[in-house]
Computed example of a mutant assay.
Amino acid sequence: MVCGAVGSLVAVGLGVYGRVHEPTFFAINLAGFSSGLAVKSWLATVAFLLVLVQLGSAMVMYGRIRSIAPGPWVAALHRWSGRVAVLVTVPVAVHCLYALGFQTGSMRTLLHSLFGCFFYGTFVTKMLLLQRSHVPRWSLPLLGGMVFTAMTALWLTSSVWFFTTSGLTF
């Protein structure tokens, strides 16, 4: 209950900040990239690929994929791919919040803003539940699925949109 409340506060807090903050339309750019949106799109794509690793490793750990012998390496792969995925999303989130804010100008940008808040709120809830000892067995896969769904929606409403309108540019 407390974990869900904290996650909800994170999601709502990000949304409120993004909505009341005056967008600067510039936040990050890395050498070699043509724009902040290109950086954001490629980093989000890396995060999405890592989330696919998360999905596969979770399915092995929960016995849904039996062709791979689960060992301690699968749990380590799951933890580290998740850590790196979240670290990669941080500059993306900073760019979204600081440069663009919570956008409602189109259905795509509204959904993207909502899923961004949902992603971090759900992620925080899942991380807090990992620290609890008496968590129902179904809760972590459910939250993991929600994080996966949110990341997929974020990637589709940002990176895929960017690549289809601008090409696979750096």
Rank of each mutant, 00 (worst) to 15 (best):
L100G: 04
V160Q: 02
R19P: 03
I65Q: 01
V124G: 01
T24N: 11
V2L: 12
V94N: 10
S158L: 06
T157G: 09
S35N: 12
L14F: 05
G121P: 01
G144D: 01
G145C: 10
I68T: 14
T109L: 11
A153M: 11
H95K: 08
M61A: 15
P91E: 04
L143Y: 03
V46A: 12
F115L: 15
I28G: 07
G82A: 11
L97D: 04
A150I: 11
L140Q: 14
V124W: 02
L128M: 11
S113T: 14
V90G: 06
L140D: 09
M127S: 05
V84H: 03
C3N: 09
V2A: 15
G144N: 03
V147L: 08
V88A: 07
V86N: 10
Q131H: 14
Y17R: 05
F102L: 13
L156E: 04
G82L: 03
V135Y: 02
S106M: 11
F25E: 15
G4D: 04
A153E: 06
M59Q: 08
M146F: 09
C3G: 09
A153L: 13
L130G: 10
F118G: 08
L52F: 12
R132N: 13
V51D: 00
P141I: 11
A93Y: 01
G105H: 05
G116V: 05
Q131Y: 09
R108H: 10
K126S: 14
V6F: 03
A11I: 13
A99Y: 00
F163C: 12
H95P: 05
M151Q: 06
A5H: 01
L55S: 08
T109M: 07
L30S: 13
T165C: 07
G71F: 02
Y17F: 08
S8D: 13
T125I: 04
F26C: 14
A47W: 02
V16G: 11
S8Q: 13
